[in-house]
Amino acid sequence: MIPLVIGVTTLTFALIHLIPGDAVEMISGETRQLTVEEKERIREKYGLNDPLPVQYVRYMVNLAKGDMGISIGTRSPVKFEISQRLPDTIILTITSILLVLVISLPIGIISALKRGTVIDTGAMTFALIGISMPAFWFGIMLMLVFGLYLDWLPTVGQGKTPLEFAKSLILPSVTLSLILVGFVTRIVRSSMLEVLSLDYVRTARAKGLSTRIVNARHALPNALIPVITVISGQFASLLGGAVVIEQVFGWPGLGRLTVNSIFRRDYMVVTGCVLVFAFMVILVNLVTDIMYTFIDPRIRYQ
C-alpha cells in the first residue's frame, strides 16, 4: 500500500513537471501581462525555482503531514479545491454503478435463463452495441433529445435543490453507466450460465426445488461474485470515463478539475487529484475483497 502511494505520487509529480510551461505563465494571461519580476516573486513564493528533487521532498513531507499544498491558479488550498469536487464525483460514480446493476442484472439473468432465444440474442446484441458506442457521443445525443427537443432535463451543470440536483444527475449518470452496462450484462449472463450448469444447482433442481427458487437462492448469489469482481476492476475505468463525461455535462467533479488543472499546469492540484483517484481505486479494491467474504463463505483471510 505505502510503496504504491509513493509510486503513484512520484509518477504524477514527474509527469506534471515534464509538461512544458508552468502555472505562473498561465496566471499571466493574454489581456494582461505579468512582469518578469512579478513572475519571479510568485515562483519564489511557491518554491517553483527550487530544484525538482527539493520540491518533491518538500511535497512528500507536507503530504505526510496532511498538507496537499496551495493551488497556484486560484490561490486556495488544494484540500479545499478537492473537497469541493470529490462528493460530486462520488455521487456520479455511485449512481452510475447502481444504474448499471439495475439495468444489467435483470437483462443478464433473463438472457441466461432464456438462452438461445430471440430475447437472448437481442439483449446480447444490445449489450455489444453499448460497449461499442463512444460514451461522450451518447451523452451529446441524450443532451440533444432530453435537454433540447423534449426539454425534460437540464443539459448542463448541477441543480441546487434536491429535486433539481436529482434531475441534473440523470443524464451524466446514464451516460457514464453506458461504459459498463453492456459489459456487465455480458458478464452476468455468462456467469449465470456457468453457475446453472454446476452440479449443485442441478442437484437442487433434481431434489424437486422449483426452478424459481433454485435460480434465486442458489444460482444468483454465486453468479454475482464475478459481477462484483468486474465492477470493482472497472471502477478505475469508470472514474476515467467520468473525466470525459464531467467535461461534456459541465459536472463540477474531480475529473473536470484534473483536466482543467493539467491545462493550467496547477501542479499541486493535479498531484492531489490523481492521488485521490488512486486512493479511491485502492479503497474500492479493498472493499471488494471484504465483500467477497460476506457473499462467498469459502473465502476467508488467513
Binding site: G7, T12, I16, L18, I19, L239, G240, V243, V259, A278
Partner: peptide, 23 residues
C-alpha cells in the same frame, strides 16, 4: 510494481497527462 502503480490510475487521466507532456 510498475504495473500496480499504473493500475491505480484511472486510465484516461493518465493518458491525458501523458498527452499533455508530449503535446
Amino acid at each position: 510494481r510498475v504495473v500496480d502503480v499504473l493500475m491505480a490510475f484511472p486510465f484516461l487521466v493518465l493518458a491525458i497527462a501523458m498527452v499533455a507532456v508530449v503535446g
